[in-house]
Write a protein that binds this DNA or RNA. Structure first.
Length: 421
RNA sequence: GGCGGGUUGCCCGAGCGGCCAAUGGGAGGGGACUGUAAAUCCCCCGGCUCUGCCUUCGAAGGUUCAAAUCCUUCACCCGCCA
């Protein structure tokens, strides 16, 4: 099956320039790029959609380039926002670039001899530009009329204004495309559909400056069936960085996918074959309670982003901790490694044991002691799967399994660990 | 630079001297029902040493027994004019 047809089947095609021409171009190995701006220390699951499309291109024999926006990240993309971004210092952005560069790299193959991946930073060609060069050599090719007509700009003018800085963003991104066209004969830019305007601006620039022809392909913005924003939970975004979102939480995030979304997500995020996904779809519709599709999704993604080992560990941890069976039946080693996956706090053997409320607050599962108290009051507080009802309740030392572990539970599925040391 | 409008809790948005930790909606949390799902229903939703105390309504001062609400200055945003 051709790449384009596969992408269509997975629901990964939004818009493209002349599809016939593009399909034809893709008959031969083509160089394609996607840009990621450093707006945080890590990428999140939302970024995964397009990043994995780039991987699909590489797997299909094309040359992938991942661009990290060391320059554009300093300016701020107005797309999809209705207010101005606050600028981050260049030190901060530089740090983020390093982290994101590493993350992006883990999804691409640099060792293959036929079509190795490339990671670039647009600061490399943007930083040396002088303001005069920028205005004369690049700015001259842009019509303010057209820039104003871009959805990202028009929306902001409507919503309350835009700074000259962010207004200029599309020029920088266009210049990136031009540079990659020149340096690496890159003739295709991929991106989320909110990037369409920025991408076609780059096509125009390439045509004007180099009389060259390139293509654009965008991926739909991921929509959940209930309309809520993908990739956010109570605790915030789901990050790829295991320090920011634990692999346990990462696995749980996918496992808790809405039934209505699970098959779509398998298509979008997994590299399972059509036949495998169709089999899961069948299994899911026959017995949704088993959640085979959810499990497959969580396994695939945890393995892809973390590792097969990690997947085994967190899945075992969940099985061990999730209610079924008596906690006392878990051997010390299993329990210890399961708890290692959870948010945790430690207390000294010699100290008096704090209340459940204080312990939960210490693990960071709730934001404040008041929030922890509320959980108790609302009847959602458990110690080692036993419900507790008093805000003053403090566990006895004897309640600790193997003399050292206790499991705090908030509600049905939020777990945290306490360890006596 | 001038004139006018605005800045409220995670977000949107009421309040416009006391009854205001502040109406309502969304997001979020707990419970019931379930399948660690969705929908639905009920409850909660600033913090703390929690029958009370402390901090919040752009910032700083002021008036008042009492201010998110009035006055002054400053900052930022929006509109019109220059």
């Amino acid at each position: 099956m051709k790449l384009i047809d596969d992408l269509r089947w997975r629901g990964l095609l939004a818009q493209s320039t002349d599809e016939k021409a593009l399909t034809q171009a893709l008959e031969k190995p083509t160089t394609a790029y996607i840009g990621f701006d450093p707006t945080a220390a890590s990428l999140h699951v939302g970024n995964l959609v397009v990043l994995l499309v780039l991987r699909r291109f590489q797997l299909a024999g094309h040359h992938p380039i991942a661009l990290v926006g060391g320059a554009t990240g300093l300016v701020g993309d107005p797309s999809g926002r209705n207010d101005e971004r606050s600028l981050n210092s260049s030190d901060v952005v530089e740090g983020w670039v390093t982290g994101i560069r590493k993350q992006v790299s883990s999804f691409l193959d640099f060792d293959t001899t036929t079509n190795p991946a490339l990671v670039v930073n647009n600061l490399d060609w943007t930083a040396p530009l002088t303001a005069i060069e920028f205005l004369r050599d690049i700015g001259k090719h842009f019509s303010v009329n057209q820039m104003l007509a871009k959805e990202s700009v028009a929306a902001r003018l409507e919503a309350g204004g835009i700074s000259y800085t962010e207004f200029s963003y599309q020029v920088l991104q266009s210049y990136d495309f031009l540079e990659l066209f020149r340096r690496h004969n890159c003739t295709l830019q991929l991106g989320g559909s909110d990037q369409w305007g920025n991408i076609v601006a780059g096509l125009d620039l390439i045509r004007r400056v180099e009389q060259g022809s390139a293509h654009a392909l965008t991926v739909p913005l991921l929509a959940k069936s209930d309309g809520s924003k993908f990739g956010k939970t109570a605790g915030g975004s789901i990050w790829l960085d295991p320090e920011m979102t634990s692999p346990y939480a990462f696995f749980q995030f996918w496992l808790n996918t809405d039934d209505k979304d699970v098959i779509n997500f398998l298509k979008i995020f997994s590299f399972l074959s059509h036949a495998e996904i169709e089999a899961l779809e069948k299994a899911h519709s026959e017995n949704p309670g088993l959640r085979e599709a959810h499990r497959a999704l969580a396994r695939e993604l945890t393995t892809l982003v973390h590792s097969p080992d990690t997947t085994t560990r967190v899945e075992n941890a969940a099985r061990a901790l999730f209610g079924q069976g008596d906690l006392n039946e878990l051997d010390e080693k299993t329990l210890g490694s399961a708890l290692a996956q959870l948010p945790r706090t430690t207390i000294s053997k010699d100290d008096e044991i704090p209340t459940w409320v204080d312990l939960l607050a210490a693990t960071g599962v709730v934001e404040s002691k008041s929030a922890a108290r509320r959980v108790v009051k609302d009847g959602g507080a458990y110690l080692n799967n036993v419900k507790i009802t008093s805000e003053e309740f403090a566990p006895e030392k004897s309640a600790f399994l193997y003399g050292k572990y206790a499991i705090l539970r908030k509600g049905k599925r939020d777990l945290a660990a306490v360890e006596l040391i």
